[in-house]
Structures are given as C-alpha cells and as structure tokens.
Amino acid sequence: MPNRSCDRTRVLQVIGNLGRGGVETWLMQVLGAIDRERFAVDVMLLRPEPAAYDDRAQALGVNVIPCPGSTRPWRFARNFRRALEQYGPYDVIHTHMYLRDGLVLRLAHGAGIPVRISHSRHPQAHRIDPLLKRAALPLVRYLVKRHATKILAVSDESAAAFLGPGILGDRRYELLTTAIDLAPFTTRGDGAALREKLGIPPEALVVGHVARFVEWKKQDFIVRVAAELRKRRDDIYFLLIGDGPCREAVRLQALDAGVSDRFVFPGERDDVPALMTGVFDLLVFPSVSEGLGRVVVEAQAAGLPCVISDGVPRHADVVTELVCRRSLAEPPAVWADSIAAALDAGRVMSPAEALATLMQSDFNINANVDHLEAVYDQGLADALPRG
C-alpha cells in the first residue's frame, strides 16, 4: 500500500556514491528540478565515500543514507532494513545498481515498498569477470523481473544487454533516458580565459573528451589517433577531462608517442559546459560501449561536431548533422581523417540551432523530470487497491 502518512510521495533513489558520473549528475539535476511540493527524495549510497556531489546533495536538503555491504547479502539486508526503519517508509524505490538491483528490489518488495523500479544505464557485460557474469546475471535477471513493478532504461540497447532482448516487449518496460540541464549551454564559456589557464594557444584547434579514465573508454586509442594527426598537422590539441585508474598510463602513452606536448589532462572539472562552448572545437568519444553516452548529447547541446564509436547507442544522435560514427575496428588513421575533415569543415550549424533541437527533445531535463514524475504517479495509482 502507498505511504499516505505524508502529503508527498516519498522516493528512495539507490546509487553507488555521489561521484561525478552520469547517473549521479542526472540525479543531482533531477533533485533540483523535481516538484518538491509533491515528491520527497532520499538517496541511498551502496558505496558511501566522500565524493564530488556531497555538498550539493546537502544543500538540496536530501537525506543521504549510507548502506554498505552490498557484496555481502546478509549484511546488506540488515543495513537496508535498518535504513528503512530510520528513514522510511517509502512509496517508491528507484535503483540504478545493475547487478545489485535484484537484491535491492527483493528486499524492497519484502519491506512493502509498492513501486519498485530498476533503471538500466550500462551495457556492462564486457566489464564483468566472465565467471561472475555466468553465475550472477541469470539470478539478477530473475530477481529484477520478479520484484520490479517498473523497468526503465536509458536506451533499448542498455535494457537488452541487462535483462535480455525480450524485456523490450515487457509491459513494464519504458525508455527513460538520462537528460541534461540545458541552461548552462545557453551562454558561451570565456574561451580566451579558459585556454590561457589550460595552456592552450588561442589559435589552436581543440579536440575534447570527457570521461572516466578506464579501459573501455579507450583514451589509449585517442593517443593513437593524435599520433596520426600529428603526422599531418601541428595545430590540434587534445583536452582530456576526467580522472581514473588509467589516466597516468594514458599520459605516459602520449609521452612515448611523442604527442604529450599536445595533450592537456586537467582532471575532473565542474565547468564542462563552459569548456565545451568556449574551448572545444570537436568531441571525440571512442568508447567500447555505453548505456547512452551522455557526454555526446552534451556536446551536441554545445553545437560541437562529434566523432564517436558505434558503441554509443543511436538514441544519443539528437542533432544528426553533428555526429560522425566510426568503428573501433577501423584504424586510428581513419578516425584521424574524420576528425580532420570535421575540423576543416567548420560549423555545420549554429550553436543556437543545435541547442534548440535539444530543447525540443526528451534530453531536456525539464521534460525528463515531468516524465519521471508521471512514472511515479502511475506506479502509485496502479498500487492502489481496486474497487
């Protein structure tokens, strides 16, 4: 039964931590845009640790609930029940934890939470140990399908990779993409000042990239592409934003390839829209696979040409004139050709035209939050007793 002890619908979002990732950024934007007179949202962290968005969540007045132990089911179950006793009851649980979704939803069902949502974001099969995948994924799929009242995904590809292709025909399935706050893209970043701080010459062309430095994001491939471009021209810089375990290895690879003087590694930044609108001339994104590829959508909002891998779902192609797809099976020289051609062609449309297209799409955070609120409302309506 829905919790009617409070005038607002109480929602528990379940994520890993509040680091600067795709789901975390989306969630912060949702928390800022959702109707707080109708919805009260708490956030449960399965990997609680200090992270980039801690202060923002606190400023929004959100209860941030640590719940460690998700790799030990019995310990996690105890912590989960204690958290619900302290902070609940909840009307909706909305989990984004992939292999842990099954356990979370089973516990939520047992605790009487009426609306239980699994939200798939990552086709992560290639990132999981094969033995773990064979052992865990069938059980997780069974638990999610048994205990979820609603199944969401940021793309059909993400849903099919997680729960199998048959899920696309399930009556509970619905596409709810990861939208972005478009307001920061309505003004242009101060390119001259930003370039000066980053050590990039005013006349240079800048190929940008934003991602965590992990193997499947293929920053090593970007270095190989840069080496090909360096053979032809000397006016292109590569600005690789982010951090992660592979960052130092990529920096050393650039050094070995003789292109380190054209690479800038500023780490994580909270001004990505300003960098995209003021510094980037093109986005390169050669990821092995993505649930969506949120940064590709952001680059289109900035009016940037994008050279991306075919591992990014086509749902991310909002302004198709800006997107060039390449296969990672193609050699770096082919990617270099595409980048050079896009840079030489210049802008195919104004940033304002590109942004207007995004404003009318489901990637607009305001439309996205309206959709999310409707999912919660319908879930509660379905949970009410008939008659």
Score class of each variant (00 low, 15 high):
Gly32Ser: 12
Gly32Phe: 03
Gly32Lys: 12
Ala33Lys: 11
Ala33Asn: 09
Ala33Ser: 14
Glu37Met: 09
Arg38Leu: 10
Phe39Leu: 12
Ala40His: 09
Asp42Val: 07
Met44Cys: 13
Leu45Met: 12
Pro48Gln: 04
Pro48Phe: 06
Pro48His: 07
Pro50Gly: 12
Ala52Gly: 05
Tyr53Asn: 10
Asp55Lys: 14
Asp55Leu: 11
Ala57Phe: 06
Ala57Val: 01
Ala57Glu: 01
Ala59Ser: 15
Leu60Ile: 02
Leu60His: 07
Gly61Tyr: 00
Gly61Lys: 02
Val62Trp: 05
Asn63Pro: 13
Val64Tyr: 10
Pro66Ser: 06
Pro66Trp: 02
Cys67Asp: 06
Pro68Cys: 08
Gly69Asp: 01
Gly69Asn: 03
Thr71His: 11
Thr71Ile: 02
Thr71Phe: 09
Pro73His: 04
Pro73Glu: 02
Pro73Ser: 06
Trp74Gln: 13
Arg75Ile: 07
Arg75Tyr: 01
Phe76Pro: 15
Ala77Val: 00
Asn79Leu: 02
Phe80Pro: 15
Arg81Pro: 10
Arg81Thr: 06
Arg81Leu: 01
Leu84Ile: 13
Gln86Val: 08
Gln86Asn: 11
Gly88Met: 02
Gly88Arg: 05
Pro89Met: 04
Pro89Arg: 07
Asp91Val: 02
Val92Asn: 10
Val92Ser: 12
Val92Lys: 14
Ile93Cys: 14
His96Asn: 13
His96Ile: 00
Tyr98Phe: 15
Leu99Pro: 07
Asp101Trp: 04
Leu103Arg: 14
Leu103Glu: 00
Val104Ser: 08
Arg106Leu: 07
Arg106Tyr: 05
Ala108Lys: 07
Gly112Leu: 05
Ile113Tyr: 07
Pro114Met: 03
Val115Phe: 09
Arg116Trp: 03
Ile117Ala: 13
Ile117Glu: 00
Ser120Arg: 07
Arg121Cys: 12
His122Cys: 14
Pro123Met: 06
Gln124Val: 05
Ala125Tyr: 03
Ala125Ile: 00
His126Pro: 03
Pro130Ala: 09
Pro130Asp: 02
Leu131Trp: 09
Lys133His: 10
Lys133Leu: 10
Lys133Val: 00
Arg134Val: 05
Arg134Ala: 15
Arg134Asn: 11
Arg134Met: 07
Leu137Asn: 05
Pro138Leu: 02
Pro138Thr: 01
Pro138Ile: 01
Val140Lys: 06
Val140Tyr: 04
Val140Trp: 04
Arg141Leu: 02
Arg141Ala: 02
Tyr142Glu: 02
Tyr142Ile: 01
Leu143Arg: 14
Lys145Gly: 05
Lys145Arg: 15
Arg146Gly: 05
Arg146Asn: 03
His147Thr: 03
His147Cys: 13
Ala148Tyr: 04
Thr149Phe: 12
Lys150Ser: 15
Lys150Glu: 11
Lys150Ala: 15
Lys150Thr: 14
